[in-house]
Amino acid sequence: MTPFDFFVLSGLLFAVGLFGVIVRRNVISLFFSLELLLNSANVLLVGFSKLHGNLFGEVFVFFVLAVAAAEAAVGLAIVVALYRYRKSVNTEDFSLLRW
C-alpha cells in the first residue's frame, strides 16, 4: 500500500465517472457519475493526508462530503421539478435552450 496505489484507485474512479458523464443520457445516471468524480477526489485527499502525516486532507474530505450532500439535495429537487413538467429525465428532451 503505497501513495501510488491511491493515485491508481483515484484515477480509475475518475475515468469511470467521466466516461459516465459523457456517455449516459439519463440525468440520474449523470448524478451517479458526478458522485464518483467527487469520491475520486476524496480518495486522493485521504492518500495525501496519510502521506504527509497531517489531517488537513481528511478535514477537507469532510467539507467535500457536506458539499456533495447539498449538491445532491438541490440537484434532485431540480430533476424532480423538471420531471413534473416534461415527464422525462433524458437530457435530449431538455434541449429547449439549445442554440
Binding site: T2, P3, F4, S10, F14, L18, F19, I22, L51, E58
Partner: peptide, 30 residues
C-alpha cells in the same frame, strides 16, 4: 470520445503520481 477522454485523464493522473511511487504512508489511525 468518452473512452478517449477518460483514458487520457487516467494516464495523466498516473503520470502525476509517478514520483510518489515507492513512498510510504504514515501508519497512524485518525
Amino acid at each position: 470520445v468518452g473512452g478517449a477522454v477518460s483514458l487520457v485523464l487516467f494516464v495523466s493522473v498516473l503520470y502525476a503520481g509517478y514520483r510518489f511511487y515507492g513512498g510510504s504512508l504514515t501508519a497512524g489511525i485518525s
